[in-house]
Design a protein around this nucleic acid. Sequence first.
DNA 1: TCGGAATGTGACCTGTCAGTCATATTCATA
DNA 2: TATGAATATGACTGACAGGTCACATTCCGA
Lengths: 210, 210
Amino acid sequence: MPTSTFFNLPLDKRNKIIDLAIGEFEHLPYDKASVNRIVKESGIAKGSFYQYFEDKKDLYRYVIHLIVEEKLKYLSPLLSDPDSHGFFAVIEELFKSGIQFAREHPRYVDIARIHLADTASPLYREMVKEHLPRNQEIFRHLIDLGIRRGEIREDVDVDFLAHLITDMNYSVVDYTKKMGGDILDDQLMNLVGRLLKYLKEGIGVPRVTI
Amino acid sequence: MPTSTFFNLPLDKRNKIIDLAIGEFEHLPYDKASVNRIVKESGIAKGSFYQYFEDKKDLYRYVIHLIVEEKLKYLSPLLSDPDSHGFFAVIEELFKSGIQFAREHPRYVDIARIHLADTASPLYREMVKEHLPRNQEIFRHLIDLGIRRGEIREDVDVDFLAHLITDMNYSVVDYTKKMGGDILDDQLMNLVGRLLKYLKEGIGVPRVTI
DNA sequence: TCGGAATGTGACCTGTCAGTCATATTCATA
DNA sequence: TATGAATATGACTGACAGGTCACATTCCGA
């Protein structure tokens, strides 16, 4: 966490520093991001930086913290009561809110992607590996519930399916990023609807049962 | 490409250098991998290295080249005649051969994953972005064919589905890596079978049609 | 207005990196 | 064995990194 000195700074200055930090981590993995550059661009002295943050890691953690906080705002209404709706409805909402987050905070998503991909960094183990299992834990719970409710076939491999749905979530967000800005919001939501249909009913031509 | 000097080297020495390079790129993205380390560990002089390779990029490209070459060995029987079997059969074989490759060359897969994740490196655009579209081109072709043959519903979004299946491929390989060595080959193949069943028929409980 | 605490500053330290080059060694051929 | 070509070598360069610290400036309560 940044020092109290940092939080005493005028809001402008604070925002400028964080904004430049985000700009740095948005394009470069932790190790290639440069404190020197952030400092130079923000016009503050190197020594000042190290009075605001303990070290580079401290700044990075703080940025990730801001991202996670923001993301939780999107998810919390869902996660507060995940059992109140059907499995496919909850998954659909999760995916949609993920896309919404990505559209409204594209820089955050870029940082998160780089962060999650940078398994080489010692920060990866430290920050990701401990939080990611919870993510899949939620999916596993939802799947279990879905099976008990008779929404999902009984013979699915719960672990594997949880893994798969997690990745599908990333995949659909990536796809919308790849498509870029020239895709409308309702098209996006249609996309999620389609994905859920694939997941629920498959893409094969249904067998005719008489 | 390495120089002729490199290829004139005794095989032992050549293998040692490449092996250490693989060991380096296996854990670190391009920019963090160190020529100095490779040189030190392999016991050759720095100057010698630069008589074997034009620069660091040259070595990296060569390693990636070796990986792609090896991977093609697994895929070529499939890709030589992708239209001869049904859509789901071809996809199943593609996934299975991918898993097989990952099991037999885990280090290669690690390097490839790091390479594909390192979008910050200038090498990414240069090496990946030009080859990746072909990958999805193949899937798109297969899907088109599947629709025409009546194996796949007509109303699927071909682009999105191609994207999704590409990611599913990564996902299943990742899952097997996550499970580690304590998973048997036939279990793996069952896994792919299950995945394909999800894809084809969905995970929802089938509607009863009378 | 004074004095101590808080904040600001940038030259400097150590380390690592990719890449170079003058020089030494080895090798093949005549 | 003599000679030129091929190969080996590691000290060196310049760039950049994160982090430090002695000193300068500002701020604020008494």
